[in-house]
Simulated assay, not measured.
Amino acid sequence: MSRPTTAEGLLDEYGRTYAEEAGIRLRNTPSPLYRLLTLCVLLSVRIKAGIAVAAARELSAAGMRTPRAMAGASWQDRVDALGRAHYRRYDESTATALGDGAQFVIDRYRGDLRRLREEAAGDPERIRGLLREFPRIGPVGADIFSREAQGVWPELRPAFDRRARDAAAGLGLPETPEGLARLVEAEDLPRLAAALVRVGLAN
């Protein structure tokens, strides 16, 4: 497989965010942000990214696009949606985590993750720390959220996690978030980060 060695080539060939692939039009509004959090939960276990993305689409198609809808769905409804995406082995524990996490968003942030952002007061590390309070979201999930959300939460920029930086090093590109950020316009940072991760996973 040929590997692009320029930022432009990466964006052309691999520059699709995981949120976009999951059908999420990411905006700084409650539902898209919550759907991104759901996607991060799904991506936080050892499972193929394509299956996690398909599971996010199934949950959305079943109406679980908000914390209240997710919490109001039955555990079996969540398991069934995951099963339709072949999200096996982790389906039961993930269904529980999604329900508990939805209730946490409701209880802690009144259903709106923008309140998490406000609580962090512009500190990206604080955002990651607050994200890790959710069930199943650890450092990897918090990094995924930051990578994808940096397009709508500018204080997260530049967000390139270890996977993205390792892939960049393998391609001869800058290895620091700041160096990578200089290669593209600010609005393309989520796409470049996703492209690097995709290249890394493909090799």
Rank of each mutant, 00 (worst) to 15 (best):
T5Y: 01
R126T: 14
E92H: 13
S31Q: 13
S2V: 10
A121W: 07
D161I: 01
S93K: 11
I127L: 15
S93C: 08
D107C: 07
L171A: 07
R3S: 11
P174W: 11
E187N: 04
R65S: 12
V105P: 05
V197N: 00
E21C: 13
I106N: 13
L37R: 13
E148S: 01
D123Y: 07
A52S: 14
R114V: 10
G99N: 00
E133W: 11
N28P: 05
P174F: 09
R88M: 14
V105F: 06
N28G: 02
E119A: 11
A202Q: 10
R128L: 14
G122N: 09
E148R: 00
M70A: 03
Q150K: 03
A69W: 08
N28R: 14
A71T: 03
I47A: 07
R128T: 07
E8V: 09
V184Y: 04
G83H: 08
R132E: 15
I51L: 14
A69Q: 15
V41S: 09
E155D: 12
Q150N: 06
P30Y: 06
L26Q: 11
M1H: 08
L173C: 13
A61N: 10
R147W: 01
L39E: 10
Y90N: 12
R115C: 02
L10V: 00
G99W: 01
V105H: 09
V140A: 13
R108M: 12
R88H: 10
W75V: 02
V184H: 03
S31I: 03
R65W: 01
G200M: 06
L43V: 07
S93F: 12
E185R: 08
D80G: 03
V53F: 03
P154G: 02
R68D: 15
L42S: 14
A62M: 04
R157K: 06
A121D: 15
G170F: 01
L37G: 10
N203M: 00
P174Y: 07
R198N: 03
D77I: 08
D107N: 14
S44M: 03
A62G: 02
V41P: 05
G129R: 13
F145T: 06
Y34C: 04
A95M: 06
G72A: 15
L59F: 04
R191A: 08
Y34R: 06
I24T: 11
E21L: 15
G101Q: 08
L130A: 14
A22Q: 06
L196H: 04
I106T: 10
P67M: 12
G99I: 00
G9Y: 03
R25V: 14
T6F: 01
G172S: 09
A159I: 03
V53R: 05
D143F: 00
E20R: 13
P32K: 07
G151D: 12
D161R: 01
R110I: 04
